[in-house]
């Protein structure tokens, strides 16, 4: 009787402890790390371009870097097409290369509007140019494959034309080459006089080109 009871006791303990042992298996080396990063937002407005000029097909070797106006005539009026070039120095904003543009807007003051509304193409320039740029030299520059933006210019004088250029400025901040933009248009209106758009240049001293950058760092 005693032996049977002892045998029953041993079996019961063995079963109970083995079940409990199986239930206490452990994972020996679980890795877990969690962290966070906060971003700081700010705005920087650059008033006045580092360099701006226009180039004119009818005078292909003449530079207009010191003119108070930036003239634009559409390609449809060739051989009297005119294009605008503008470039900004972002160093005054002191944005670290680890930052980025949330939004960026180039603004040009349209002092004299054409009689026909055109879409103005802002195309990123990818090779260096100077304020002495001429039409012939502009033909040897390199450009992005398509315009960054093409806002409607309208026919109203005395207004700011805004060009969203966020993707380009984000690239500039991150160390991409910054040679600014070419403003041109591919439309065709009436003639080079009626289709002429005139913007204020930095040399005009008033309503100068601006670049506004909302950024994070």
């Amino acid at each position: 009787m005693t032996r049977r009871l002892l045998l029953l006791l041993v079996l019961t303990l063995a079963v109970g402890s083995s079940v409990a042992y199986a239930a206490s298996l452990t994972v020996s080396s679980w890795h877990l790390w969690a962290g966070s990063q906060a971003l700081t937002k700010a705005t920087c407005t650059i008033t006045g371009a580092q360099i701006d000029t226009d180039v004119q097909q009818k005078t292909p070797t003449t530079s207009y870097g010191t003119a108070t106006t930036l003239e634009l005539v559409p390609s449809g009026d060739s051989p009297k097409e005119e294009q605008v070039f503008v470039q900004f120095d972002l160093s005054s904003c002191a944005i670290p290369t680890t930052g980025g543009a949330d939004s960026a807007t180039l603004s040009l003051y349209l002092s004299t509007a054409p009689t026909t509304s055109f879409n103005y193409d802002a195309t990123r320039v990818t090779s260096a140019w100077a304020s002495t740029l001429t039409w012939n030299q502009a033909q040897t520059l390199t450009y992005a494959g398509s315009p960054t933006t093409s806002p409607v210019g309208g026919t109203t004088s005395g207004v700011q034309i805004s060009f969203p250029v966020t993707v380009d400025v984000d690239s500039f901040i991150k160390g991409g080459s910054n040679f600014g933009w070419r403003i041109s248009d591919t439309g065709s209106g009436q003639n080079a006089v009626k289709d002429l758009a005139t913007f204020a240049s930095t040399d005009s001293g008033a309503n100068v080109p601006t670049l506004t950058i909302n950024y994070e760092k």
């Binding site: 239930a23 206490s24 298996l25 452990t26 994972v27 020996s28 080396s29 679980w30 890795h31 877990l32 790390w33 962290g35 990063q37 680890t98 980025g100 543009a101 949330d102 939004s103 960054t148 933006t149 969203p164 250029v165 966020t166 993707v167 380009d168 984000d170 991150k174």
Partner: peptide, 24 residues
């Protein structure tokens, strides 16, 4: 149920950058 030893795989910190399209 059981016990686990939780450690990091060696990360001290991480820092991201992001790209945007022209719409932001």
């Amino acid at each position: 149920a059981g016990n686990a030893s939780v450690t990091s795989c060696g990360v001290a910190s991480l820092s991201a950058t992001r790209n945007v399209d022209n719409a932001g």
